[in-house]
Nucleic acid binder design. Structure first.
Lengths: 244, 244
DNA sequence: CTATTGCTTCGTCCGGCGGCGAAGGATGGG
DNA sequence: CCCATCCTTCGCCGCCGGACGAAGCAATAG
């Protein structure tokens, strides 16, 4: 998930290396159930000697992937936190990637490409188009809202000052997964998106996180950004959702 | 994010191994910008010879991490899709894990532990408690809603038949990140959560995805599940959000 | 105290992976 | 047609890291 911040140049290689070993991967997936397991049990599950398992557990411990609790002669290991579980789950999802997607899956994927939420702000083609429209119409310069933009956003009910007052970063660009181009994130992105949903310009779609542009939203947005002809709401393209 | 399905026993090790090499990691992060880059450029960026880079790119290609486009003498590589970018971003996030969290971060983390959305259904302590309450009061048996449950859910406005009619899995358990115990996912989980929000029993919280239990929600839920004393809405505990 | 069990540490072996230079296609310019 | 450029394939070397058995600690049982 592309968060508001750009991806830091963290060394992902050593972290990935912790998971890259089949034995450690087996240990980690065994722990993914959430329960704490004894070292011996993990050795058995992974199919290695106690010595080998111990070495692996030491590395996982050092890497912060697991924590250990001593209880009598036993040492119970468990995943150190939900972030670790998340990494494993995301990894498992791409590992299990089916060679060819089912019709339904590709349909949902296309739905998500059109418009979806990224945490709490608009993403997908629509999200990217929105940011471009805001920039193109002079509403947004850098990370700041212009006087022009202040007027336009107030007109549809966005409380810009309120968004600026939060501690959250105001209007960062957020790299879009599917478009690989930025959309509007941060406090402003969330505020704008909230308005888009309140006014019924977008509706919750069929798939989780999917949004669909309503007819009303299409015409209102087209009126709001008349010069932005490449957006999903443009009339020039007699745009139709490509999802059939 | 823990999705509706349980994590398949996919071989995550070989996938992780693709990222585990520093040179490949450098190549991948360079491609994370979304642009397609030529093999030579990637070699330069990663600081290795063309031969070495070529070998790595071949492996990434074989693993489905990147795709290649030939254009004249050049071969442009790019990430094969958003899933790959997601893996890298999640990995980067745990790699950059600060040893000690800032006050604000830990506060937000605790907020998220209480109640949050997982895609479109309730998660966190509240989500786990909800599932336990449903099971404990005989509303849910296995993956099916009992007659009892049908009555209770209809009473608060959940359209159970509607949820059952979708193609989405009906009422799967979804392993909770923070609690490491299941909460209610699937179509039913989404339907119930929608009602909880509509009725104002939960409100959108400060952090993205965070939810807070309202006073009204607390009393209504306590009335709905009188026997479930360990839940966040239980009066017996004079429960207060531990977030100060 | 001694025996047993559970886990870690130590010493050692070996396979595999990453690195490079040189040679071998492929493409485009002149 | 020849050369320059870009990339891949080949062959070789060095070394890291994962495997095990044996020995060393810790803790409980009797």
């Amino acid at each position: 998930m592309a968060a508001d911040h750009t991806v830091r140049d963290a060394d992902i290689a050593p972290v990935a290396a912790l998971i890259a070993d089949p034995t450690r991967a087996a240990i980690l997936t065994a722990l993914l159930g959430g329960r704490a397991l004894a070292a011996g049990e993990l050795a058995r599950l992974a199919g290695v000697s106690a010595a080998t398992a111990s070495a692996h557990l030491a590395r996982l411990l050092d890497g912060g992937f697991v924590t250990v609790v001593r209880q009598g002669r036993h040492r119970y290991y468990r995943l150190s936190g939900p972030e670790v579980a998340e990494v494993l789950e995301v990894l498992a999802r791409v590992s299990a990637r089916p060679p060819v997607r089912s019709l339904r899956q590709s349909r949902q994927a296309r739905l998500l490409e059109e418009a979806r939420t990224c945490y709490d702000h608009l993403a997908g083609k629509a999200g990217v188009a929105l940011l471009e429209a805001l920039r193109g119409s002079g509403c947004l310069a850098g990370e700041e809202v212009t006087a022009e933009g202040e007027r336009l956003l107030a007109g549809i009910g966005v409380h810009v000052a309120g968004a600026r007052a939060t501690r959250r970063r105001f209007a960062p660009e957020c790299l879009d997964w599917t478009e690989r181009r930025p959309h509007l994130g941060g406090a402003l992105g969330a505020a704008v998106t909230a308005v888009l949903l309140e006014r019924g310009w977008f509706r919750q779609g069929a798939a989780p996180r999917a949004l669909t542009l309503t007819d009303e939203g299409r015409s209102e947005l087209a009126a709001l950004f008349p010069s932005h002809v490449t957006a999903p709401w443009s009339k020039e393209l007699t745009w139709q959702s490509p999802v059939t």
